[in-house]
Design a protein around this nucleic acid. Structure first.
Lengths: 167, 167
DNA sequence: TATTGTTATACTCTATAACTATA
DNA sequence: TATAGTTATAGAGTATAACAATA
């Protein structure tokens, strides 16, 4: 209930800075590996991984992808175009909704993912998990998963421009 | 001792994805606030914060800044140039080493930081810390600080191009 | 010879706004 | 009228390589 203080506690600052630094360094290391081994950017990898690993069908609609990866629509169109040109995904009109576009990972896309994964995993393990015990890893996941869900719930949604309640 | 497996455990994946998503969403939200309120990019804010909050003197050398923020030299030169043009920092030859350049935050720089901080803190609190208890926050910091130190220790240093051991 | 920092350059990424087509 | 996606465009950020100056 107490009114929110206007600065963070020392512990909060430690946690915040550590989080951003870890994420930044990790992203940097991963990007280098992805670029070297698979000629993929971080975002492109995320899109492929979502299609090839998370999705059961290997397909998703543009809007869902944009939401998932935190992206503007046009940005996603751009990246999807690159991936399509590289033969890693295809785009086709959605079956149910003629406005929609369904993106699907191709065989070549899965191959590329397979090419990249071992080194990717290796980087993550060395950089992120080496200093963490199994118990630590568990704890970390249990802390961060609720935070992610909380962030996703209160949506600074990236895609759609808000516009409502003009009186 | 066991040879490293070629994929991550389910828990590791959960932790890894949650970490990157949280960091990504957080950065996104913060960037918007910084841009709206203080006309600062994420990196520019990090540089100012490092000078104004972390450093006792308000000054640091270019190389140290580049290392701290994970940055190429030329990228830092570019950003430092922007900050200088905006009057938020100054650059002067280092006292001890004539090759070096010392960057110092100005009064205007500290003002800008002060302008931006309340909203910044608010975003962090709402997005990141709202779902975390004090104990959770403690635990998170204790988990991530060692990881950060580990990453910094095994340096995929960004700045200097490696070149050594050519036989 | 190695290091510090800048410059020139080229490229990638991202967002905004305008537009088309379908619901 | 609202939503899905694309296009055009313009700007910011980043890295690489070549360079000058100092250690």
């Amino acid at each position: 209930m107490a009114s929110t203080p206007s600065s963070l506690s020392a512990v909060q600052l430690r946690a915040y800075f550590a989080l951003t630094e870890v994420a930044g360094l990790l992203k940097h290391a991963v990007e280098q590996q992805l670029r070297d081994v698979g000629d993929l950017s971080w975002v492109q990898f995320q899109l492929l991984a979502r299609l090839g690993l998370d999705s059961a069908t290997g397909s998703e609609r543009m809007t869902d992808l944009a939401d998932g990866v935190v992206y503007s629509r046009s940005g996603l169109t751009y990246q999807a175009g690159l991936l399509e040109k590289a033969g890693l995904v295809t785009r086709a009109p959605s079956a149910d909704d003629d406005r929609g576009v369904t993106v699907s990972i191709t065989g070549a896309g899965r191959d590329r993912l397979a090419t990249v994964m071992p080194g990717h995993v290796e980087v993550i393990r060395r950089q992120l998990f080496e200093p963490l015990s199994a118990k630590d890893t568990d704890a970390l996941a249990d802390l961060l998963v609720p935070v992610r869900d909380h962030m996703r719930a209160a949506p600074p949604r990236s895609a759609t421009p808000r516009r409502r309640r003009e009186s």
